[in-house]
Design a protein around this nucleic acid. Structure first.
Lengths: 193, 193
DNA sequence: AAAAATAAGTCAACATGACTGACATAAATG
DNA sequence: CATTTATGTCAGTCATGTTGACTTATTTTT
């Protein structure tokens, strides 16, 4: 299992590769390469199916995909603020408020005032929340594991790089921080439980 | 530029790789590998941003993401039937009907009765339709091209494989056929225009 | 200490795109 | 002629996104 920091450091090397490629002269017109459109379609299909099993489970609870996203990130990064979630999901306070309220009311997420800044509501998954988050993650992880096996584990870093570079440049560093921060949480978790 | 059939043939080798990996004994529990969750999150972020620029363009026309999907597939595979679209998008006739009607009314898609079966409405993009489809595709292709450059072109087939294997098994052959069929259309296009 | 900024929650109103279930029409097929 | 199929449509519902304005509690700035 590769270390997270190692993997994240690798993501940066992609930038150099892009610069090098750009120096090779004017890039071929993107609309002439049919492989690009194939990839775009594959991404659509991959994502379409990626959300299917969780959606079915969510139905049992009267939840939707929006609840999944909120619960996932709160579970992954306990202690997250509401503002952080808004940044990640890129939705409005209104939209988030609705689903968050339901998750809190139904006992999947607990709020607690920040210690240094008591205006903040730090979000934590409850035991039920963790359980549901894991159940929702399972089919998705199976799917990713399968696809990873099929593409050869050697390709894993390239795939991470590809997906990482698909993120808008302005948001990449935020995601990078997110990937690192949840790992720090992971280490801390042993103490808390 | 790799031949499409060669690339699709490659997709099948992934199956063998999965079988081989399975023989190595009981697979490690997927929930213990943090890299899998990272990939799942990266996929979320990649898709989140993948749809942003097109969404903005669609706004100008009073269209939404659903219109994009319909127009994209009709443009990619002219002559497609309504039933094909339903299969691909996995939505109901009702949902499709609404957006399709708008695209037809606004002159982006034309319908024509099938020759062998006149119940079928074969869907074609109009000149305006092709223009809009290309405009919507452009930022997405740029994004994919960028990400591909960053991950190294050598990794391209692994990335295609990964995304392909993320598709539910039952739908893979359908997608494979789709990827091939639009290419046949591509060859024919020269004659028609 | 007063004023301004910030974090969060809430109100009302609205749009989009999903869903269900039933039904209509035209054409093909047995 | 009866049935099946491909498509379109009606009516109603729900989930999730939007905007803009406003409140409350708390922190920060002046």
């Amino acid at each position: 299992m590769t270390d997270i920091n190692e993997r994240i450091r690798d993501l940066d090397t992609g930038v150099d590769r892009v610069k090098k490629a750009a120096q090779k002269g004017p890039r071929a017109n993107v609309s002439t390469d049919p492989a690009l459109l194939d990839l775009a379609e594959l991404l659509f299909f991959a994502y379409r199916d990626f959300t299917r099993e969780p959606d079915k489970i969510l139905d049992e609870f009267g939840f939707g995909r929006a609840h999944h996203r909120v619960l996932h990130f709160v579970n992954r990064r306990p202690g997250m603020r509401v503002a952080d979630l808004l940044e990640i999901l890129k939705i409005t306070k209104q939209s988030l408020g609705r689903v968050l309220k339901q998750l809190v009311d139904d006992g999947f997420i607990a709020q607690e005032a920040g210690k240094s800044d008591r205006r903040e509501r730090l979000l934590h998954p409850t035991a039920h929340g963790r359980e549901l988050a894991n159940r929702l993650a399972e089919p998705q992880l199976e799917r990713v594991a399968h696809a990873l096996n099929a593409s050869g584990r050697k390709a894993q870093s390239s795939i991470e790089m590809f997906l990482y570079q698909m993120i808008s440049e302005a948001d990449r560093s935020q995601v990078e921080r997110l990937l690192m921060s949840k790992d720090r949480q992971h280490e801390k978790r042993e103490e808390r439980e």
